[in-house]
Amino acid sequence: KAKLLVLLYAFVATDADTICIGYHANNSTDTVDTILEKNVAVTHSVNLLEDSHNGKLCKLKGIAPLQLGKCNITGWLLGNPECDSLLPARSWSYIVETPNSENGACYPGDLIDYEELREQLSSVSSLERFEIFPKESSWPNHTFNGVTVSCSHRGKSSFYRNLLWLTKKGDSYPKLTNSYVNNKGKEVLVLWGVHHPSSSDEQQSLYSNGNAYVSVASSNYNRRFTPEIAARPKVRDQHGRMNYYWTLLEPGDTIIFEATGNLIAPWYAFALSRGFESGIITSNASMHECNTKCQTPQGAINSNLPFQNIHPVTIGECPKYVRSTKLRMVTGLRNIPSIQYRGLFGAIAGFIEGGWTGMIDGWYGYHHQNEQGSGYAADQKSTQNAINGITNKVNSVIEKMNTQFTAVGKEFNNLEKRMENLNKKVDDGFLDIWTYNAELLVLLENERTLDFHDLNVKNLYEKVKSQLKNNAKEIGNGCFEFYHKCDNECMESVRNGTYDYPKYSEESKLNR
């Protein structure tokens, strides 16, 4: 008799109507990190870190770059004969040098303040090359056809396309004075040089004057150069050297050249137009028929994500570079809930034993079982409120962090190594801060989002509990077992918050 009662009780308990509160689960393989956990499985997430590029040089917003090819900045601007293909260059979106560009200054020497000139050019998007001192009329008392084997072109001695090597005419090199007034309405880049012979005999042979000088002056520039005559090792078949100089001439300003020898005179100059998204990159990537809004030396990035880990040097509207390998923000729920887990921000989770793959029309909802059958029903209101809140948060985070910009490298010469090392340390410090901030932001927001979901499920549970009161009992896994019969209409009233407690209280009292 006792065995019969136990079996009867078990049958009745199993047959009781139930309603459970749960949440969506799926077959997603997404994982995120939080402050407290690593690799948390979630139903949905968004990636904030771009880690792919196309490996190509592309047009930037429809404008092609200027590819210097086998030449570098120095060779292009001075007019190395091997860089003749660059003479027609007028406009570009950015400038590309190759790491091993070999054609710079063909006659050995240095372009002074080269690093600063590169910085200036990094904001130039177009130029006009014009004859600042016409070759045939500007130097009537001097020979202007100086050439050298060091600047050979097609097997013949030649010289820079933008400079003139002035030497004596006959047996004399009379003092020369020439000036140019900038009437271009924009900055003009003027380049010139000073020749330093290897011996007094060479000085006399070329310029006749043993104590020659070169003077260059404008409103913002004033220097006097004296040739340094000295024996030097042979470089590119030359014992002599040429140093090259430049200045930016403001609109309306005048530049005056005065010399008694050794002047490498300007022939062509450049009127410059600035462009905020221009820059110089060093890259071996090849040019393709493609378009982008962000270019790196590795390749083009076409992404609206706020961060990238491809390269710190970028041109155009680019994500911020960070050292992170993963920045994924959760938008959905835990896919593998932890039992009795309390989140960092106070939300209680884990009283549900598992997510439901059968509930596909919402994030949170119900599963019921009664004599009429069983089924899932999503709670659309709480789901939609959660979707709206999380979507707004993700968009806000992306908008705040998605300050796209150009980031170019800084140039230092060989004598500025300590400054370069200090600059690298400062840049590394800023990069570490950006990386830390980005990672911390994602970790915190992921923790908040998961706790937010847990709290929403808990609130749904409490909503049902407050309606049923003692007409049902909690069975410990997020479910309630009714003390009365609850048909589909009754189940719907529980879900929509209109459950009639008094209607079922007498039946429940008897069954309790």
Score class of each variant (00 low, 15 high):
G109W: 10
D113L: 12
T18L: 15
A16T: 05
L189Y: 02
I256C: 10
D33P: 11
S208V: 09
T74Q: 07
G261R: 00
E37Y: 06
Y160E: 11
K234W: 01
T74S: 10
A217F: 12
W192S: 05
S52Y: 07
I280H: 01
S125G: 06
Y94S: 08
F225Y: 13
A25D: 00
Y207Q: 02
S157N: 06
T148I: 03
Q238H: 15
R274M: 12
A217H: 14
F276S: 12
N47D: 13
Q204Y: 10
G155Q: 13
D30N: 10
G155D: 15
E277N: 13
G69L: 13
Y114W: 03
P108A: 07
T282M: 10
S215C: 03
A89H: 12
E115S: 10
S150H: 11
E136W: 00
S208N: 13
G62H: 15
I255H: 00
S278M: 03
V181P: 02
I19G: 03
G210E: 10
A10S: 13
S85M: 07
R154I: 11
E102F: 06
S199N: 12
D15R: 12
V235A: 14
Y9I: 14
T14N: 05
I73P: 14
L127R: 00
I63K: 13
N262T: 01
I255N: 03
G275C: 11
Y94H: 08
I229H: 12
A212M: 04
R154K: 06
Y160S: 05
Y94M: 04
H44N: 09
K168T: 14
E277L: 13
Y207P: 04
T74A: 08
L86T: 11
S150E: 04
V46M: 12
K38W: 04
V181I: 13
S215Y: 04
L66V: 13
L263Y: 13
L191F: 12
L248P: 00
R223D: 03
T226E: 13
L117Y: 07
K56D: 05
F276A: 13
E102P: 14
Q120W: 11
L7V: 08
R241M: 08
L166D: 01
V96K: 03
S126T: 08
C71Y: 08
I35G: 07
L87F: 07
T148N: 05
F225N: 03
N178Q: 14
T167N: 04
F225M: 14
F159E: 03
W267S: 08
W246T: 03
N222M: 05
I21S: 05
K184V: 14
A89L: 13
G261Y: 01
P266N: 13
H53S: 08
P266R: 11
V188Y: 01
N54Y: 01
A259F: 06
L60Q: 01
N182K: 11
S126L: 04
S52G: 14
H44M: 13
V188H: 02
D171A: 12
E97L: 08
G210Y: 09
Q203E: 13
K59W: 07
Y213V: 07
N100I: 03
C71V: 12
D51I: 08
I264T: 03
T29L: 03
L111W: 14
D30Y: 08
Y244A: 10
L111N: 03
W139G: 06
L7H: 04
Q204P: 00
T98R: 12
L272F: 12
S219F: 14
H24A: 14
P140G: 12
D51Q: 03
T14S: 11
P227V: 14
P88I: 14
G22F: 02
A13F: 12
K184S: 04
E277I: 11
W165Y: 04
L57N: 12
V214F: 12
S137T: 06
H24Y: 12
S205E: 15
P197Q: 00
V124Q: 01
I255Y: 09
V96S: 01
G210N: 11
P233Y: 05
A265F: 02
R223L: 09
S125N: 10
G109M: 12
M242V: 03
L36V: 00
G75T: 02
F257V: 13
K1G: 07
R118N: 06
F159G: 02
R241F: 02
N182C: 14
F130Q: 05
H53D: 04
E136Y: 08
V12A: 14
K135P: 11
N27P: 02
E136S: 13
T98Q: 15
Y213A: 10
Y173A: 01
P99I: 13
I21N: 11
D113M: 10
K70Y: 01
V42T: 09
T98H: 11
G62Q: 10
E277M: 02
G109T: 06
N27V: 02
Y207L: 02
A2Q: 10
S179H: 06
L57H: 08
H196L: 05
W267F: 06
A105Q: 04
Y160C: 02
T98A: 14
H239I: 15
Q238S: 05
K175P: 12
G22A: 08
H153C: 11
G185E: 14
T98F: 03
L66D: 04
R223A: 14
I132Q: 03
K56C: 06
A2C: 10
M242Q: 09
R90C: 04
T254R: 10
K61Y: 13
S85H: 13
Y244W: 07
P99Y: 12
F130M: 08
I73A: 02
R118Y: 15
S218K: 06
A10Y: 09
I112V: 01
S198L: 03
L263N: 03
A25E: 00
S52F: 12
Y9D: 02
D33A: 03
L78E: 05
G170H: 04
K135H: 05
K234Y: 04
T29I: 04
V214S: 00
A64I: 04
K168M: 10
V40S: 01
D237N: 10
N182W: 08
L60G: 04
G55N: 10
L5C: 07
H24P: 04
Y107D: 03
L111I: 15
S122I: 03
W92A: 00
Q204M: 10
D110W: 01
S28L: 02
P140W: 04
V32P: 00
K135E: 10
C58G: 06
T247D: 09
P134Q: 12
Y23K: 10
A41E: 00
C106T: 05
A64R: 12
E37I: 08
K168Q: 14
N47E: 14
V147R: 14
P81Q: 02
L117M: 12
R90H: 14
P233D: 00
A16P: 04
H24V: 12
R223I: 08
L263G: 01
R161C: 09
T74G: 08
S199Y: 07
S205R: 01
N26L: 04
D253W: 02
Y9V: 08
H142V: 10
A105H: 04
A13D: 03
I256H: 09
A10K: 05
P99T: 07
S278I: 02
L206M: 14
N141K: 06
L49I: 02
G170S: 15
S273N: 11
G79Q: 09
V124T: 14
V216A: 04
L176A: 15
G55C: 02
I229C: 12
N100V: 02
E82Y: 13
Y268V: 04
R224Y: 12
L36E: 06
K175H: 14
R241V: 09
W165G: 07
V147W: 00
V190P: 00
V188G: 07
L4T: 03
F270E: 12
K184H: 08
G240D: 08
K3A: 14
D84G: 07
A41W: 11
S101I: 02
T167R: 06
D253H: 09
E37F: 03
H153P: 05
